[in-house]
Nucleic acid binder design. Structure first.
Lengths: 206, 206
DNA sequence: GTAGAAACATTCATGGATGTATGTAAAGTG
DNA sequence: CACTTTACATACATCCATGAATGTTTCTAC
């Protein structure tokens, strides 16, 4: 059945991406064939090839659709912040709350982190997802640097190293979260960050 | 050229696993064909099919060869330890030093974490690798519980939750480490753990 | 109301990966 | 010294995913 209007076509496109999400999550990206996605979406491979050049582009579009709206939250400038660490903590937890609120995010992150292989043409695609985390978490360095200047942190703290640690912590938490959504919670994330910040403030870091 | 003795055959087997490591790391598990591995090893697919039933078994054997010797380090019983936290810290860092000492470990961990898809028949295989980390890091719960009993930690610390956090931290660190070996260092790992322990001791956790 | 383009469906040709079956040389066994 | 088994190499048949080519329907523009 041929969809005619622009809106109908866009709906078909979204249906295909929805199907890609569920099938990628179930079978992994590599083992998923365009036939699988087509069947799950209730269309033929022809429809997919009309909207996308190949599986890579389907993956890319699926990622972008999920990640782009998440990007906005991570926009921040801590240079004039009075309480940079508190603000950073809030912002991290807000982002994670957002992820938690929509199962779609867990699925997409799980696909990116555990159900796709970081090689060849997938590298730039997964990188986009990782860069999102990266950009968000690189602000940490700024926040920590500002906090140090304000005297909220001891001088010996190295913002770059501290941000790397924090970044790895969050990455690990999200990765574990995606594997076992029922085990990890937002509450735990807050605790981890608090512990780390407390240690930093009292000179256990750097 | 046919290898005759048992030792020769074992050498061939190891050559195949060596080749699998490098090719898996370069192309990812899914895109790697047995022909690729055979060419890299300087044998034919026939040799591989003699030693292994399929690609999955090659992957499994490669993992076991790398992980099994690592398992020994993580054996520990903290129930009678006088300084469980210090011992735990030392043991974690020793394991990571071991990983750091041999590039093979970085490669294998990178394959397991970033160059393979956690689906279908790969699930039990990768699980073996993850369970290794898990077993090692589940001892953390015991160590933390003992430390609490000894009064080294406040009573409000929940050993299970604390171990989950620590586990996620280490996982994230190793994952980041595998992606960017030049950025992350053992030194940083020690710092992270110190920060977390310091926060825990002073009631920022739980 | 007719031509063209959009939005798909269907069909076809191709390659390449897998598993198996068979061939073969050397080593072990009695 | 026969023969059997090990440890591979070579050859073959099958399947299946891809991409392109072509067919079909509906809307849109003039």
């Amino acid at each position: 059945m041929v969809r005619k209007t622009k809106e109908d076509a866009l709906e078909t496109r979204n249906t295909i991406l929805d199907a890609a999400e569920t099938v990628f999550y179930r079978k992994g990206v590599a083992r998923t064939t365009l036939t699988d996605i087509a069947e799950a979406a209730g269309v033929t491979r022809g429809a997919i090839y009309w909207h996308f050049a190949n599986k890579g582009e389907v993956f890319d579009a699926m990622m972008r659709r999920a990640i782009d709206p998440l990007e906005a939250i991570s926009e921040a400038d801590y240079s004039t912040s009075a309480q940079p660490l508190e603000e950073l903590r809030t912002r991290i937890l807000t982002t994670m709350e957002r992820i938690d609120s929509d199962p779609r995010y867990i699925r997409v992150f799980a696909i990116a982190m555990h159900k796709s292989e970081y090689v060849d043409e997938m590298v730039p695609l997964v990188d986009q997802c990782l860069e999102c985390c990266d950009r968000h978490l690189l602000r940490q360095e700024q926040a920590i640097a500002v906090a140090r200047q304000l005297g909220h942190l001891p001088a010996k703290v190295d913002p770059h190293r501290a941000a790397l640690s924090l970044s790895a912590m969050i990455d690990g938490l999200i990765a574990s979260w995606c594997l076992q959504p029922e085990v990890y919670s937002l509450d735990l994330a807050g605790n981890m960050i608090d512990c780390f910040f407390y240690g930093m403030k009292n000179g256990a870091c750097g």
